[in-house]
Simulated assay, not measured.
Amino acid sequence: MADYWVNIFLNDENLKKIEAAGLQGSVVDIDGKKAIQVPMTQKDQKKLVKGFTDLDFDGNNACVLPADAEEKLLNIVLEMKTPDVMKFAIMKIYNPLAGKAPRSAQR
């Protein structure tokens, strides 16, 4: 079982894509909205918090990513046809070097 979750809330267009990928069984209802929950470990959660400092987790240890990262994650879920993609997706949505100045070569 996952320690944490990323909720991807689905509009009608994305819900159709999820159904076309055969993932309708993974759709859950959260506060009256359709969503896919992508499970992640505590280690993955720490990486996301480091990359997205304003990320908030609710009482169920779930969060919502910024729009561009959420879109990338949804595309990975659709491509791999499973919501269990965080091990692969983490490097696509989290850039550990973001905001750091490049190091110059030491001589």
Rank of each mutant, 00 (worst) to 15 (best):
L73F: 01
A67T: 14
I76Q: 06
Q37M: 07
K72H: 08
L73Q: 03
A98W: 07
L65N: 04
K72N: 10
A35T: 09
V77D: 05
K87I: 13
D54H: 11
A101D: 15
A89V: 02
K72F: 05
L65V: 05
K47S: 12
K87Q: 14
G51V: 03
P39I: 03
V77G: 03
D68E: 15
R103F: 09
I36E: 00
G51Q: 04
V85R: 03
M80T: 14
Q37S: 06
V64A: 11
D44E: 12
L78H: 06
I90H: 02
A105D: 13
P102K: 07
F57D: 03
Q45I: 05
K87T: 15
A105W: 08
M80W: 10
T82D: 05
P102C: 06
P96I: 00
E71G: 09
D58W: 05
K46V: 09
M80Y: 10
P102S: 10
K34Q: 10
E70R: 06
N61Y: 07
V38W: 01
E79C: 15
A69H: 02
K43S: 13
G59E: 14
M86D: 07
N75A: 09
K50A: 13
V38N: 04
K87D: 15
P83K: 04
L78P: 08
D84K: 10
F57K: 02
V38R: 06
P96F: 03
E71A: 14
P83N: 09
M91D: 14
N61T: 09
Q37D: 01
A89E: 02
P83C: 06
S104W: 07
L78R: 04
K34T: 08
G51F: 02
D68A: 15
T41Q: 02
Q42C: 12
K50C: 08
V64D: 06
A89H: 01
A101K: 15
D58Q: 09
V64G: 08
L74Y: 00
V77E: 03
Q45E: 12
L73I: 01
I76R: 08
G51Y: 01
T82P: 05
E79R: 15
F52Q: 04
T41V: 02
M91N: 14
Q42R: 13
D84H: 08
A98Y: 08
F88P: 08
N61S: 13
M91F: 09
G59T: 14
E71N: 13
P83W: 00
T82Y: 01
M40C: 06
K34R: 08
Q37N: 08
L48F: 01
K47I: 13
K43E: 10
D58Y: 01
Y94V: 14
D44K: 08
K47W: 07
E71W: 04
Q37F: 03
K100V: 07
A105S: 12
N95Q: 03
G51W: 02
I36N: 04
E70P: 00
R103G: 13
V49E: 12
D44S: 12
T53W: 04
N61L: 10
I90C: 07
Y94I: 11
